[in-house]
Simulated assay, not measured.
Amino acid sequence: MSIELEAAAADSLSHLVGGGRNRHMPPHGSHCKNCDAELVGPFCHVCGQGADLHHRSILHLIYEAFEGLFELDGRLWRTLPALFFKPGGLARDYIDGRIVRHIPPFRCFLVALVVFIFAAQNMTHRSTVISQRNVARENARLATPQGRAEAAAKRRTEAAKDLRDDLKEAAADRDEELKDKDVSPQKTLAAYNRRIGRVQARYARSMHHADRVAQGLPAKDPAEDAAKPARPDKTRWFEKGIKKAADDPDQYWNVVFNWGHRGAVGLLPIVGLSLALVYRRRKDLYVYDHLIVAMNLMSFGFLVSAVGFLLPFSAMGWYFAAAAVWSLVNLFQTLRGGYGSSLLGAGIKTLVVWSITGFASVLLLTGLLVLAVATI
């Protein structure tokens, strides 16, 4: 009796996990709809297309779409844990050609990049919403006499503090220069007087702004911009871009993200070539192998950053500090396990690759932000 029950349970389980697919198989001797090869099983042995003839539901079509994009099969659950916790073994598998057991590295890189972009856009949108709420709250406070008086008093207090600090710093610098016998006292005092004039003018402007706030007017007087000397046309485009970015931060960050994925792809060869540089004596490895490893490293970085962008702003600082340490450890594990480096060798190469990548990232990010200002 128990044997019969086990057989019945096994038959039911086979239907749950896909055994029911055979109910929709074509008759024996049928040919593949794609390549016309004779079928000998549920999949064509020539092109791999399924021989299932039944009409799939809409939910099944949605599942297939996600499966094609994210590889929702056993490879996903083997690749992601290895990407985060065993990057050396994952890199070793790719280098040794054991690829079919994992998600293709470039597909993993692209999916991680898409997730990163969406998470970053969500973060900037949240930041914009918070900023708009703060502005609305401040405007509501300035709409009352008490609120205007408090805001004006705060500006006056800050201006007085800045004046004291600036005067103290200017006097200290003056006294230090006067100790140098090679410096002309007259020039030092003249420079000091000019500096004091600028400090006092800045204090006067701050007090004027406080008076305007107390009167219910915008803090900045439009006459100030009119009194400024006109700048050359070579720099006006940048000022206009900055103003547009400040007026519409959502649009600015959309431009940044539109260029961002291109910059991220441009960072890929930099990481790959930095790996090729530190392993230039390994004749058994090619640039292709280094690029595969670079895709894994960047996929890890994108996914870790995407998680951080979804956190509350109060937790981001701690998270990204821990993520920076984790990235170093991940890189070390990759070089140690994937390339078989010694502890000392992997440590030194980790610092070299980390430094090159960090410097290139700063340059790319700076260029990206400036480019977004120029094209907004």
Rank of each mutant, 00 (worst) to 15 (best):
Y192P: 06
F302A: 05
L365Q: 15
R281H: 07
E4S: 13
D233S: 13
S342I: 04
F238P: 03
G41N: 06
I62H: 13
S299F: 04
G197W: 09
Y339Q: 03
V362Q: 12
N254K: 06
T350Y: 02
A82D: 12
E138K: 06
G260P: 01
D248P: 06
A140E: 11
P87G: 07
G20W: 10
G20M: 05
I348P: 02
A149D: 08
E239S: 12
F302V: 01
F302E: 01
L61D: 13
A136F: 08
V199M: 08
R281G: 03
A226V: 03
D93A: 15
G19E: 06
A112G: 07
P42R: 08
L273K: 03
N139D: 12
D225R: 07
M298P: 00
G147I: 01
N34A: 14
Y339V: 06
F320L: 05
E158R: 08
V325M: 09
I292P: 00
S14N: 14
A227T: 01
L344P: 00
D162T: 06
G89F: 08
S299L: 04
G97A: 04
S355K: 06
E150M: 10
F313A: 11
W326L: 15
A321W: 10
Q49T: 08
A65W: 13
W77F: 15
W237S: 10
L371N: 12
Q215E: 13
H28S: 15
E6G: 15
